[in-house]
């Protein structure tokens, strides 16, 4: 009896990692954008653009690797709109991000029409030798697909660049006090453009995970709110790539758990179970905002504020 519980637990944890991975990609990118002072609430649209670009390119080339490159490029190009409107034109970041989501939803639906019902290519799960033999952890972390492993590499690099390099220091200073950074010779515009584009590329990858690994098909609006969940996760993670990993798997866990309960069927109505990831996100956001009320943590001081040199 005990053994079967363990098997179930491992299966759920493994699914939690799978389910959390797309959010993790998006979250790392958004942390960089927000650390540089630019809020991008267009993640949902960026994910959809990445998902359809990745699917179409992978499907056409017959190779999922082509798909993830296409998704990252499409995400970066699409986020260029947001960068131009908010950094160069200094328009409202929230309105621009919302519009980006709406545009991304429309464009992905438009170009995705011929892809509906097609069976695409994708990444298969494979076990990493030695590591996958570790009890429990091995199965949870090291019997996954290539994109999950890619995210394992991204997180420490993202953390290291943010906290241990000059570039990371420049990014953080631009987000905290742009005029001070500017007077020290850091190009606010260039750093912000770079971070928003990187955020777009990562959101594209997150979207591509959905259409190239999590499933191997294109479904309209398949991101299902994950872009918005990520925005909450960034706050939960206190703008730290390391904590983002923990948060992403927590949300992935909620998703995996509700799917598992649905499959078993223990009397809770299906649609209530499907609400779980969204409700959990709200609860965690509430807890995070309570914590930040008590003790100001996190948000970059210049987040959301356009920077104009002559108005310094």
């Amino acid at each position: 009896m005990e053994g079967s519980w363990l098997i179930l637990l491992v299966a759920i944890l493994q699914a939690a990692v799978r389910s959390g991975t797309p959010i993790l990609f998006v979250c790392i990118g958004e942390i960089y954008a927000e650390r540089s002072g630019i809020l991008n609430v267009g993640l949902e649209g960026l994910m959809l653009v990445g998902a359809i670009a990745g699917f179409t390119a992978g499907y056409t080339a017959g190779n999922p690797l082509v798909g993830i490159f296409a998704a990252a490029i499409a995400g970066a190009l699409f986020s260029l709109i947001h960068a131009y409107v908010t950094i160069t034109l200094r328009a409202d970041q929230i309105v621009s991000g919302l519009t980006l989501t709406i545009l991304g939803t429309g464009i992905s639906g438009f170009f995705g029409k011929p892809m509906i019902g097609q069976v695409g290519v994708g990444f298969d799960q494979f076990a990493i030798p030695v590591l996958s033999k570790i009890p429990i952890l091995g199965q949870v972390l090291f019997q996954q697909d290539a994109m999950v492993y890619l995210s394992f590499v991204f997180v420490p690099i993202a953390w290291w660049v943010m906290y241990k390099t000059h570039l990371g220091l420049a990014i953080r200073s631009v987000g905290e006090n742009p005029s001070a950074a500017d007077s020290l010779g850091v190009s606010v515009v260039r750093i912000r453009y770079g971070c928003v584009l990187f955020g777009g590329a990562m959101a594209g990858l997150g979207g591509a995970y959905l259409s190239l690994a999590y499933t191997t098909m294109w479904i309209e609006q398949m991101s299902g709110g994950r872009g918005w969940i990520t925005l909450a996760l960034v706050i939960f993670a206190a703008w730290n790539p390391g904590r983002a990993m923990l948060g992403a798997y927590l949300f992935g866990g909620a998703d995996a758990l509700q799917l598992r309960i649905q499959a078993v069927g223990i009397g809770i109505p299906t649609y209530f179970l499907m609400m779980l990831p969204y409700v959990l996100t709200i609860v965690i956001l509430v807890l995070a905002s309570r914590a930040s009320l008590r003790r100001r943590i996190g948000a970059p001081a210049a987040l959301g504020i356009p920077y104009a040199r002559e108005e310094r």
Partner: peptide, 27 residues
């Protein structure tokens, strides 16, 4: 009360409301 970011909460509640309606019309 808690200065919770309303962009995220209002948006996520959209998904919850749509599922709420789905529960009744499927059930």
């Amino acid at each position: 009360k808690l200065n919770t970011n309303e962009i995220i909460t209002t948006l996520l509640l959209n998904y919850v409301a749509i599922l709420w309606v789905a529960h009744f019309i499927y059930g």
